[in-house]
């Protein structure tokens, strides 16, 4: 009998992830087949690929994958892709410009998922500074982008960021 109050760490061998024909992540977890699985980052900012909570379609936790790298290759790639889909948090490669126009801060960004534009009403609520140089930018509509480490941005982007923040 499983203790319901215990965090279950899944042994890497017990996880076999596949993508179904319809593009939905599924697979085998501890000998049970699931047509649909959802994955959650438990520490979305601190760990990208560690401590991943695996849940069934009803949202019940099946267990935690301690480290993505431990999985065998196919599962690893599928999980990585699914995390990217589920955590839509494009990484900012370059800040093209930051402008303040009649009450809106407009950020033109180049991200690893393509160019985008964010609109903020102010900076104190829409820009979060985290430890390790990470910056989370959010938008009036709820869209978010992240700068993994502002210190590693190119000079042009850093200048915009420093001017603004």
């Amino acid at each position: 009998m499983k203790d319901p109050y215990e965090i279950r760490i899944l042994p890497p061998a017990a996880v076999n992830l596949k993508r179904g024909a319809g593009g939905v992540l599924g697979g085998k977890v501890e000998n049970t087949h699931y047509e649909e699985l959802t994955v959650y980052r438990t520490f979305p900012f601190r760990f990208d690929e560690e401590y991943i909570s695996v849940r069934n379609a009803k949202g019940e936790e099946l267990g935690i994958i301690r480290e993505l790298a431990e999985l065998e290759q196919d599962s690893r790639e599928e999980l990585r892709r699914e995390l990217q889909y589920r955590y839509f948090l494009p990484r900012v490669n370059r800040i093209v410009s930051v402008k303040f126009k009649s009450d809106l801060w407009l950020w033109d960004l180049k991200t690893h998922l393509g160019p985008t534009r964010l609109a903020m009403r102010n900076l104190q609520d829409y820009v979060q500074l985290h430890s390790g140089g990470r910056v989370i930018l959010s938008d009036i509509s709820g869209k978010r982008c992240q700068i993994t480490d502002w210190r590693s941005l190119d000079g042009h982007s850093r200048k915009w960021l420093e001017d603004t923040l």
């Binding site: 179904g20 024909a21 319809g22 939905v24 047509e35 649909e36 955590y87 839509f88």
Partner: peptide, 16 residues
Amino acid sequence: AVGGGSLHIDTDFGPV
């Protein structure tokens, strides 16, 4: 999902 979402369709042949 976080920062977005997806439209899932359940069919006789599994979710899409």
